[in-house]
Amino acid sequence: MASPGHQCERHPTDVHDSARSGGSGGPRVPGGPACPVHSPTSAEDKKRNGLRKGLTLRRDYVKISVPESKASRLPSEWWKTVLAFAYAAFNLVLTTVMITVVHERVPAKDSSPPLPDKFFDYIDRVNWAFTVTEVNGMLLVGIWSIQWLFHRYRAIVGRRFFFLIGTLYLYRCITMYITTLPVPGMHMTCAPKLYGDSQAKLQRVLQLISGAGLSINGSHIMCGDFLYSGHTVMLTLTYLFIKEYSPRSFWWYHLLCWLLAAVGSVCILVAHEHYSVDVVVAYFITTRLFYWYHTMTNVQVRALRCSANGYLTHTWWNPIFNFLERNVQTQVPCSFCWPVTWPPACLKNPCKKYTMVQSAREE
């Protein structure tokens, strides 16, 4: 018979036997009473099990937010793209009208010789250089048109391009109207002035439009549209859009387009078709407007659009920007597909870092 002070010790074999029997009861010492052990019904275990259940219940009520589909966050809204295209077309036509007006004010070469230009002092004129500029420009426009056509979100990208090109040419109308520079070289042959012949002026406007304002087509025979360079605008803007909306891994593609744009811009000066300040101002205005606009499309600064301290919103075109970008709730990814809906299926090529403006935030 066990003494009152006897303490039961659990033998390893008894533990296994207890586990095999379903864990009911405690182990027995030969010749002694059942050893009292902690069972699931003890007060301490009840408290512990209750705590576990409480935590489990709390975990069951955790709300998991399901993100919206990318299609609903990037609506096409083609009607806005059509409006942006109309805005760009209007300003391009206005530019041709302004060139015709400014042409009548260009001073004669005899009375107002070309202004001194440091680049012209060191680099002699090359006759065929401006042809290289226009060929490079047509290549970049063609490359960008194909890339834009295959972009999955071409409606959003298209209205951004149309708005920026329209705004840049609107600025160009203002600068070349308020300051008319003399011809940059004595080699330039300008068409005769028409003075009050409105019908002949209209024919010149139509001639400029039909030839896309290119000298290689023989449509640009007027002078006065020097400040700032429209060729530099097209070269720079198409390159920026090509790089912005293509995968970062296509470095060879970006390098090729950069060379086309850079060589084309330099050849403008080599041909003595524009003053150096015309090219510099065109590059500066184009890049600043492009970076400004795409910074404002960043999700991070979206809250600044309605903020009093959002200096990015202090532009005259901010209401137009809000109209065009109001429903674009995320960044436009590098995703491409066939421009028509027939097979093969769309091919996706997402880019984690596709924009210079957003790369720092993503890293």
Score class of each variant (00 low, 15 high):
M1V: 12
A2S: 12
P4Q: 13
G5E: 11
Q7C: 15
P12N: 02
S18M: 11
R20Y: 11
S21Q: 11
S21E: 10
G22P: 09
G26E: 08
V29C: 12
P30N: 05
A34M: 14
P36W: 04
K46N: 06
G50T: 13
G50Q: 15
G50Y: 01
L51A: 05
R52W: 00
D60R: 15
V62W: 00
K63D: 07
I64Y: 08
P67C: 04
P67T: 04
P67W: 00
K70N: 08
E77S: 09
W78T: 12
W79F: 15
K80W: 03
T81A: 10
Y87I: 15
Y87H: 14
F90L: 11
T95H: 15
T96W: 10
T100N: 12
V101C: 04
A108K: 11
S111R: 07
P113W: 00
D117F: 03
D117W: 01
F119W: 11
D121F: 11
D124H: 14
W128Q: 09
E134K: 10
N136K: 05
M138T: 14
L139T: 14
Q147N: 09
L149S: 11
F150W: 12
F150R: 09
Y153F: 10
A155V: 03
F162V: 05
L164V: 06
I165A: 08
L168P: 11
Y169E: 12
Y169T: 14
L170F: 10
R172D: 15
I174F: 15
I178R: 01
I178V: 10
T179L: 07
L181R: 04
L181A: 04
A191Q: 02
K193N: 13
L194I: 04
G196A: 08
Q199G: 03
K201L: 05
L202E: 06
R204K: 05
L206E: 02
L206W: 05
L208R: 01
S210L: 09
S210V: 10
S215F: 01
C223A: 03
D225L: 00
F226D: 00
F226C: 02
Y228V: 11
S229T: 05
S229E: 04
V233Y: 01
M234C: 08
L235A: 07
Y239I: 00
I242P: 06
K243T: 11
S246G: 02
R248H: 12
W251F: 10
W258F: 14
W258C: 13
V266C: 11
L269G: 05
Y275G: 03
V277E: 01
D278E: 07
V279M: 08
A282K: 06
Y283N: 13
F284N: 03
T286E: 05
R288T: 15
Y291L: 13
Y291W: 09
Y293K: 03
Y293D: 08
H294V: 01
T297L: 12
N298L: 15
V301H: 08
V301L: 13
V301M: 00
R302P: 05
L304G: 03
L304P: 00
G310P: 06
L312C: 00
T315F: 12
T315A: 15
W316P: 07
P319W: 12
F321P: 08
F323L: 15
L324T: 06
L324P: 04
R326K: 14
Q329M: 09
C334H: 01
S335W: 06
F336Y: 15
T341E: 09
P343G: 08
L347E: 10
K352M: 07
Y354F: 06
A360D: 13
A360C: 08
